[in-house]
Structure formats: C-alpha cells, structure tokens
Design a protein around this nucleic acid. Structure first.
Lengths: 334, 334
DNA sequence: TCATGAAATGTATGCGCTTACATTTTAGAA
DNA sequence: TTCTAAAATGTAAGCGCATACATTTCATGA
C-alpha cells in the first residue's frame, strides 16, 4: 500500500497525498479530510526509506554505550530516549562493549543509518588523549555527524561533552577522610577511563595537598565481580587500609564485604565511599555513602543542547562540567 | 558521495559496487579489492534509505521495553542487541513506560520504521487476556510484523512467546516454606503483570495443595522504593509473617530491611526469597535466596527463532516455557 | 460577463540503491 | 586455435516519496 494507491482511492494525485502526510498548508480542507479518511481506512504507513531518501534525515539519534546492563548507563539511555522522543526523535541503541574495534564498528554502523546525531554514553570513550587512535577516530566521525559525549571529554570540532566533576568529588572525599584521621586510603577502581582517571587525580591531589604520600600499593584496579574483588582484597594480606574510595558502588560493596569478613567495624575501622548513587548503594548493609554524579543532569543538558543544534542551529558548548553531590549514608562518619 | 562516484573512481559499474557492498559472490577478487580500496579511501557510507527502498528491509529489529533502567530488562536488551548484531541486524530501542497509549504509540512508531521484527521485553505487556484492548492491538500489529515476546504470553497469529515458568518456581518455594514449617507466607509483588500473575497463581496453588488458607492480608502489592516498601510493611502492625516470596529482588530486600528493623533473625524467624537473581541480591546482607528466571535463555531462544524465521522462513514455536532455577543463598534455610 | 491573480492540484523528475536481465570476459575442453 | 559454458560485469528499471514547476480551479472585482 503506497502513496499511489492512496491517491487513486482518494481520487487525487500523489502530490496531494504527500502534502497531507507532511501537513503542508496547500491542501483544501475537503481534500485533506478525504485523503485522511482513506489513509485511516486502509491503515497506510508511509515508507520511511522513500521518505528518508527525499528528506535525507531520519529524525533519529544514535546512542552508543559500552554496556546497557550497567545501571548508570541504563538510566542515562532511558532518560535520553524518553526526552528525545518528546522532541520527535527516535533512538537507535548500540552496546559496543569496551573494545576499541567494536566501538569503531558500531560508530560506523550508526553513521550508516544516517542518524542526525551520535551520543556516546559512559566514560570509557577516550581518555585524556592517551588513546590517540580512539580520539582520532572520533574526530573523523564528528565530521559526518555531531557527537555528544556524556561523562567523557574529547576536544574536537563538532564534539560536545558534558561530564561530572569527579575530580572535585574525589578530592573532597579524600580530604574528608584525612580530616577524620584516616591514614591509609585505598583507591579502588575498575577499568581505566576518563572519569576513573579524573577520580584518581582528585584522590592524589588531596593526598599531596595534605602532605600524604601517594602509595602505589593503595591503588587497586579490579574489573571483577563483587565477590572476586572482595576475595582479591582478602588475599592481599599485607594490604592495610582504613578508608576506601571506590570508583563504582559495586566495588565499594566489595570493600564492605571485605570488612565484614575481617570483622572490621564500619565506618569506625573502615570507611567506604562509592560512586554513582546506584540502587546497589541502598541494598548494601550498612547503606553506602556514595557520590551522585548527576547522570540525569548531564543527560538533560545534552538533550537540550542537541535539540537547539538540530532545530535552531545553535552551536552547543564544547564542554560542560557539573558538580557531584556526596550522598551521606552509613559507611562513613562524615 | 554515492555509488556512482565510487563506480567512476574504481572504473566499474554501479552494479559491481553494489555487489561488493553486499558481499555478493559474483565479483572477482581483483575488482573487489579495487572497489574496497576506493571506498576506504573516500570513506564511502552507503545511503541506508536508498538501500532500504530497494531491499524493503532495514535489517533492523525493534525492541520495546517498559523501562530500560530496570536491570532485568537492561540485561535482556543487552543480550538481544549483542546477538542480533552478530547476525547483521541492528536494534532500535523504545522505552515505552507502562501506560497502554504510550506502548501503542511506540509500536506504531517502530512499525513505521519498517523493522523486520518487533520484540516486546517484560511481562507488563498484556496479561492473560484481561486487557482485551492491549492484546487486540498486538494482534493487529502482528499482521504487519512478527512479534516476539519475552516473559509474556499473548496467543495470536505471528506472535511468538518465550517465558520463564514462574508458576512452578513460586509453587516450589511456597511448598518448601510449608515443609519447613512456615505458617504465614507473605506474597510481596510489584505491579500486576503476566509473570506476576503466574507467580501468585503458583503461590496460591501450593497453599491450597497443602491445605493452607489463601489469606488476602498476606498478598501485598507495592510499586514503591525499597525504603518505602519496608516502611509500609512496618506501619502495617497487624501484619505477621514468617516467610516472604517477593516477585522482585528489590522487594525482597525491602523485606530483609524490615526484618532488620524489627530485629528478626534471618532466615530462622523470617525467610525471604526474591526473583530475578539480579546483582542486588548479592549486595544485600545476608545475601538473598532468589529465583533466576533465565532471562538469558529466553533471549537466546528468541534470537534463535527470530533468525530462523527471517533467514529461512522457519515458523517459530508459538510459546516456549523455560524452567527457573532457585539460587540458594542466606535468607532461607533450604 | 470576463479578466486576473491566488489557491489548489497535478505532472514529472530525481533521491541512491538493488537486481533481473543482457552483455562481455574468461577458462577449460576439444 | 576455436568453441562453449560459466563467471564477471554492465544496463536499466524500478523502489515510494518529496518537490519544483506546470496546470487547473476558484473567488473577486470591474
């Protein structure tokens, strides 16, 4: 059932049908009603391909994230999808995993769908220039399509970034630990990433500013499950610490479980702070002090700027930084 | 930059370029290499619209779920996306929320994108015939596009369902509680849904089979947060129970927190079982006994059948039921 | 009544691709 | 070398729509 069929049934030309479909003004009320009637009757759905061929836009946003089963990203995607939809844009989702080739493959794929804009969620996309291949590829892609990044920063034309000020948050937590007399603060991180690096930098800066040593033994990377991470900490007998700054709530929970196994009182003997204010943080016992990195605000800002760009050609800001909020619960005494 | 440009640059016809792009066999190695070289050089991206116009398929699957920020659905979407991609299909995601009109809007939208297949994730889609409008709409949509449902069942032509045997799992847990001498078992559920109804039916059947009364006071629906649900349970002073069967891990955790507040020993004085085997279940303390409803298997089955249908026109099974697995942890003594 | 310009509608072309069918090239057998 | 069938390549006709431009209809004023 195509536009010709409708035209024939309604006794008009395809141009008129097209005008009705596109709400163009130059159609008399009577004709419009007749055409709409026929369309309704036969359940006509315009062919998106033919349409796109003419308009060369699909009103579709590509969203790429490493892992949609990560709560943080799922929330972000959910928010983006919902709000872009309000503006009449649909979303194509891609879950790329963390590997570079995969990401490139997906970006290419999304671009080939003639998306109007690409959103990269999650901080594994490009560090601070330490993966030249990746940032280079993004700059290339940005020549085709505007790229918006959430929780990452890559300088480049047509690339617009919004990220939480993880540096500051990590700095503050570390400083608070020090003020509370903590002596050995463990930095517990998952895979390296833009935001992970920011957090570590904040952590180290706070140590240095307070004349604490930056001890490599206290910097611990784990990409394993909660239980495995706990076990790794337990196995590492010489490792001692009285405070933990984890880059993710699940890692923080591993630290809580570690304390439980070693019978350490929380927060007196071991304090723990996580990141993301995820639902995990209130499931844990005691409930977790965590840093809310304002994912929703980052998404909101992104949507807003994107729509301005698409609809009114307003140039977005190259980078926007949003302060975090420390959610104080029961694994710290501040 | 279109196929004509590439053809000219490579000194071949557009048909040959098209064959290279589509990996059609009838191209000599030399020619293919030459064309690929040119494409690479100029960064050619085929126009998806024109392509779709010709093929009348976008090799795209529409996925609709009420809420991608729900871990269960996020995992499912993640799995679907990854595996469909392996077969060369892309995914468009829609998060519809739970309202009927929204769902219809999204379905229409996805259909208008000429998706090859529609996947509905999550059990809020249609109960067992108790929402005629919704199931009717689905049947209508199924005339356009095959529909695959995950964790729901709607009978209808061109609708294919895979769901976990929640009934059986709920039955078994309830029966196990009874064998352990539990007297008052609370059924704690979120919003009504296909799977929720199954669980409740299993629960009630087990009670009846063991000559226990089905007490309406012990059937408790809550769509609130973990803390609010706990508080609601606490406020309900007359409500007494020594076992909980929750339709979701987060609700089970609310029950655990309830026990903690009332100083009830787990599992001796209060046993708790959740559903979904989500990450929340191991964050909680004690770690949660939960029912794994095999989301991954459901997704795998769905992908497999879908690909068979699309590529080889093999008629999928109308319904597939997969047994659940009870994951025994520390909130029960069985 | 007719001329006139505006409004409504129609005609025809092109968007970039796939593919059936036509043509050319190639490889192998005679 | 020549013939033949198969492999490789080319040609051209759509796919369904938007839209520039052409044509018709209509309302208005003279």
């Amino acid at each position: 059932m195509n536009i010709y069929d409708i035209a024939k049934l309604a006794g008009v030309s395809i141009a008129t049908v097209s005008r009705v479909v596109n709400d163009s003004a130059k159609v008399s009320g009577k004709t419009r009603a007749k055409v709409l009637g026929v369309m309704e009757e036969v359940g006509y759905i315009p062919n998106i391909f033919a349409r796109g061929l003419g308009l060369n836009s699909m009103r579709t946003i590509g969203i790429l994230c490493p892992d949609i089963s990560d709560i943080y990203m799922a929330n972000a995607v959910s928010y983006l999808e919902k709000n872009l939809n309000k503006h009449g844009y649909d979303c194509i989702l891609g879950c790329s995993g963390h590997r570079q080739e995969e990401k490139e493959k997906y970006i290419k794929l999304l671009l080939s769908k003639r998306i109007d804009t690409l959103v990269l969620v999650g901080s594994t996309y490009a560090g601070k220039g330490d993966n030249p291949a990746e940032t280079e590829y993004l700059r290339l892609a940005a020549k085709e399509t505007p790229i918006f990044m959430i929780n990452a920063y890559v300088p480049g034309e047509n690339i617009y970034c919004a990220y939480a000020d993880d540096f500051q948050a990590a700095y503050e937590v570390t400083a608070a630990y020090i003020r509370r007399g903590k002596k050995r603060i463990l930095f517990l991180s998952n895979a390296r990433s833009f935001s992970g690096d920011q957090k570590r930098a904040g952590y180290e800066k706070a140590l240095i500013d307070n004349a604490y040593p930056v001890d490599g033994a206290l910097i611990f990377y784990s990409e394993h499950s909660i239980h495995d991470t706990r076990d790794m900490l337990l196995l590492n007998k010489k490792l001692e610490f009285d405070g933990v700054l984890a880059t993710e709530d699940s890692l923080a929970i591993a630290a809580v479980k570690y304390a439980k196994t070693k019978n350490l009182a929380i927060p007196a003997e071991l304090s723990v702070v996580g990141f993301n204010n995820s639902r995990l943080s209130i499931c844990c016992e005691p409930e977790l002090t965590t840093i809310d990195n304002k994912g929703e605000i980052l998404c909101a800002v992104t949507v807003e700027q994107m729509i301005s760009l698409l609809e009114e050609k307003v140039q977005p800001k190259e980078k926007i930084s949003v302060p975090c909020e420390i959610i104080k619960r029961n694994t710290t005494d501040f």
